[in-house]
């Protein structure tokens, strides 16, 4: 919490050029990473051919199919998923004023997992495409439960945190006991839960795009309000903020963004919890900038993780969810250790 507030006491004027510079660098870096992500992989494809696959797509060329039906959906999924997770992480940390809050705390991931397990266990469905909407429904139900149990609009941060953690743990344990009972469910589920970007189809991404867009709009609005919220609820109310409305708005934004991500790519840890802290190192304390930087950094990190996991060194199939923590964990510690004067 001091992390949020200490930067606010520094003089604003000095840092603004820094912030724009970082933004520019981040955008250039993202563009470069996107190009590399299309080019590299088990089968390196030349720039000319990548360009040709966009302007003159021919379904007979193998490389065109690889680019358009495998690498492009992955790239888009990494963009959307990384940005969505990191943004909602920033929102929940600002809302609860707790640096350890994770968007999964609202029960979205646990609910989605339970939904998928129930779907396999009761209905015997094993087609990953069907899981998208089941996971969405599970996440929705459990988030509403957590929100109500956390006191609804009148609730406090502590209540929301405790309710979310208790309900998530309960749902995960329920799911796990179902899995231990049924080997068949486990065989299907264990691929879903690893959280990866492979096998995502363009169709799914397009279907989820409105939800991502709606969530992003809500997130943008709540970022403006959360600037007052991080001062504490009483101060925020004194400044004229309707805290109950802000809480609902932020929870709705997190729900849209995370539910869409988890139903697209399975549960991916780390991005929602740690990337906001990284972003804050570059953006300063303003929640609007924080949210923007979180989105860019989250997208970049997930893309990088997916790219590295695809390289032949890792056997070409390391899950992005695992790689993101392997790369991001040490990077985060290094960022914290770095002399603060150099960065801020």
């Amino acid at each position: 919490m001091t992390l949020i507030t200490t930067t606010a006491s520094r003089p604003q004027r000095k840092r603004i050029p820094d912030r724009h510079l970082w933004l520019l660098l981040a955008l250039v870096g993202l563009a470069l990473l996107s190009c590399l992500s299309l080019r590299l992989g088990l089968r390196p494809i030349g720039w000319n051919e990548i360009w040709a696959s966009f302007v003159a797509y021919s379904p007979e060329t193998a490389n065109h199919i690889v680019i358009q039906q495998m690498r492009l959906p992955r790239l888009l999924a990494a963009w959307l998923g990384g940005a969505a997770l990191a943004t909602s992480g920033m929102l929940i940390q600002g809302l609860t004023r707790n640096p350890l809050a994770d968007p999964g705390l609202l029960g979205i991931n646990a609910g989605a997992a339970l939904g998928v397990i129930l779907c396999i266990f009761l209905l015997g469905i094993s087609d990953p495409a069907a899981f998208v909407w089941v996971a969405m429904a599970g996440g929705l139900v459990s988030t509403i439960l957590v929100f109500l149990l956390g006191g609804g609009q009148r609730g406090s941060n502590l209540r929301l945190i405790l309710a979310g953690a208790a309900l998530s743990a309960l749902f995960l344990a329920l799911g796990r006991s179902l899995l231990l009972v049924s080997q068949r469910s486990l065989d299907v589920y264990r691929f879903w839960v690893l959280g990866g970007l492979d096998g995502i189809e363009m169709q799914t991404i397009f279907a989820l795009l409105p939800i991502f867009g709606f969530g992003a709009a809500l997130a943008l609005i709540s970022a403006f309000h959360l600037n007052a919220m991080i001062l504490g609820e009483d101060t925020a109310r004194g400044l004229g903020l309707r805290t109950a409305g802000t809480r609902t708005l932020a929870v709705a934004a997190i729900l849209c963004l995370c539910a869409a991500t988890v139903s697209m790519a399975g549960p991916i840890a780390f991005v929602g919890l740690v990337v906001p802290h990284m972003a804050r190192r570059f953006s300063g304390a303003d929640m609007r900038w924080c949210t923007l930087f979180s989105a860019l950094l989250g997208a970049g990190l997930l893309m990088l993780a997916d790219l590295v996991g695809r390289l032949p060194f890792f056997g070409g199939n390391m899950q992005a969810g695992v790689m993101v923590a392997l790369i991001g964990g040490p990077a985060f510690v290094w960022l914290l250790r770095r002399n603060e004067r150099g960065l801020r």
Binding site: P99, V274, H277, M323, V324, G329, F332, L336
Partner: peptide, 12 residues
Amino acid sequence: LIGLGGGFALAA
């Protein structure tokens, strides 16, 4: 925060 980062890396 350092514990968090390290913990995630170790879990991965």
